[in-house]
Amino acid sequence: MLDTLRDKLNQAVRGYAPHEHRPLDGYVTAMTAFGGLAATLAAATKITGRPVPDRPSAGDVVLLSLATHKLSRLLAKDAVTSPLRAPFTSYAGPAGAAELNEEVRDRGSSVRHGIGELVTCPFCLAVWVATGLVGGLVLTPRLTRLAATVLTATAASDFLQFAYDAAKKSTEA
């Protein structure tokens, strides 16, 4: 059945990018996995009977926004997390401030290529991270707020490090 769906997808999108490889199977796999994540969080919320807030507090939105930014960049760009990306990427060089530039691996597998694009893009990962953090806020709010506080403090520290470095350079010039 999966092969039939894949064949139909390939037929339907054959003219999408005839002169450029686009890993549409990989994107479908990623979308399916994301749907699975969202469904799992929804099911866990229903099973546990946890109340879903009518609207999150402004403080939680700010906390999770900053935490999402930091965790997305940490997963997509940080040198320390490169082993997580290595099956899907290859090292291309430093990107400054403990970040790396990586290239998506060759086109041998569109699923591998699609995942490579996802794990090297902090903007793309942010949707996944925010979904996980919001799910965590519903299911385990105290633990999620604590973890988000660590990530938010780290993000603030990063910005302060850059500000300090810029101030130091401006006095040396």
Rank of each mutant, 00 (worst) to 15 (best):
T48I: 06
A58L: 14
A44V: 04
L143T: 15
A30T: 12
K46S: 02
G135E: 04
L74E: 09
T120D: 03
V127S: 08
M1P: 00
G136A: 11
T40M: 08
V52F: 07
T171P: 00
H113P: 01
L125E: 03
L146E: 10
D7A: 14
S110Q: 14
A30C: 12
V129D: 00
E103T: 14
S82H: 11
A156N: 03
G93C: 14
L2M: 09
A44Y: 06
T131H: 02
V111T: 14
L2S: 12
V138R: 01
R50A: 12
T48K: 07
E102L: 04
A163I: 07
H113E: 12
Y164S: 13
A79C: 09
R14K: 13
R14I: 12
G114M: 10
V13R: 02
I115P: 00
G26Y: 00
A147T: 13
L63N: 06
L139I: 13
L75A: 11
A167V: 07
F34M: 12
R85I: 06
A153F: 09
P51V: 05
L118G: 02
L5D: 01
A79F: 07
T152V: 08
F34Y: 12
L137D: 01
Q161F: 11
R73K: 07
G116F: 00
A147H: 05
S82W: 11
E117Y: 02
G93I: 14
L74K: 06
W128A: 09
G93K: 13
T152L: 09
V104M: 01
E172F: 05
A79T: 10
A156M: 07
A98F: 09
L64H: 11
R145A: 06
L160P: 00
L118M: 10
D25A: 05
S57Y: 04
L64S: 03
P56K: 02
Q11F: 06
R50Q: 07
T140V: 06
H113Y: 10
T140H: 01
T154L: 08
H21L: 10
R85L: 02
D60W: 09
F88P: 01
G93S: 15
A86R: 13
A156Q: 07
T29C: 11
V61M: 11
T171D: 06
V134P: 00
G136H: 01
A17I: 14
G114W: 01
T154V: 09
M31Q: 08
E102Y: 00
L5F: 14
A92D: 04
L143V: 15
A173V: 06
T154N: 09
L41T: 03
A12C: 09
H69V: 13
A147E: 02
V134H: 01
P18A: 14
G108T: 08
L41G: 03
